[in-house]
């Protein structure tokens, strides 16, 4: 328990540090202006979302291999938090795209893949809630977790080639990410660390809750 509190505390401190860095310390990007500061939230969340889906596939394979309920609870918890982070990644991405490109959305390979990623893992969560509880649902989830993960690079490739055929419509000032200054890199790393610790904390909490849920579920059926 103290480990968790440490995790939550350090995540909170890192978030404060990140906000301080974003508002008071990092230089303003010459081309993108203030809006570039969204980057320190958006990109770390994107990376953490992807980390979450790696955890899902590890938990899925682990469940099928070892039949361990812990692995399944881990996969489920990671999928739920991954969807949360992907949702935030998409929303913050749109809020970044609007001032920079003048549009809320564009079908770039990254954006398309992120959206499909969101659909795949939302489908995973729906499958879990509609499938029978216990082993059967866990097996279905694990198979979906594996298939979904393998699908992601194929989606990215298809979206990339599709972009070649359908060149991007003219959008505002082209946001070439370009090189980051030293201070920007530091702020980005602080952001990455802050969101990773937050992810680890949420994952542990959700994992425990999920374990308790299935335990109570089983107790109810064995007792009634």
């Amino acid at each position: 328990m103290t480990g968790r509190l440490t995790l939550l505390g350090s995540s909170g401190v890192l978030m404060m540090l990140l906000l301080t860095l974003i508002f008071l310390w990092v230089p303003t990007d010459i081309v993108l202006g203030i809006s570039q500061r969204i980057f320190y939230f958006h990109v770390p969340m994107a990376l953490v979302a992807f980390l979450a889906f790696v955890v899902v596939v590890v938990g899925s394979i682990g469940y099928l291999w070892k039949k361990s309920e812990r692995m399944d609870a881990l996969a489920y918890a990671a999928a739920e938090i991954g969807v949360l982070f992907t949702t935030l990644m998409l929303i913050t991405g749109m809020l970044w795209a609007k001032p920079v490109w003048g549009v809320w959305w564009t079908w770039s390979p990254q954006l398309t893949t992120s959206l499909i990623l969101w659909f795949i893992y939302t489908a995973y969560l729906m499958l879990r809630s509609y499938a029978p509880q216990g082993d059967q649902g866990a097996r279905y989830g694990a198979v979906m977790g594996i298939i979904g993960f393998v699908d992601v690079p194929i989606v990215y490739m298809a979206a990339k080639w599709w972009r070649d055929v359908h060149p991007e419509a003219v959008v505002g000032p082209l946001a070439d990410e370009g090189s980051l200054e030293g201070k920007m890199v530091i702020a980005f790393l602080v952001g990455l660390l802050a969101f990773t610790t937050l992810f680890a904390y949420l994952l542990m909490e959700r994992y425990t809750l999920r374990r308790q849920e299935s335990l109570v579920e089983r107790l109810r059926y064995s007792h009634v």
Binding site: I116, T122, G148, A159
Partner: peptide, 15 residues
């Protein structure tokens, strides 16, 4: 549920 599972995975093939 079937289309919700199927469509996102089949996106590359449809494209």
């Amino acid at each position: 549920l079937l289309p919700i599972l199927f469509f996102p995975i089949a996106v590359p093939v449809i494209i």
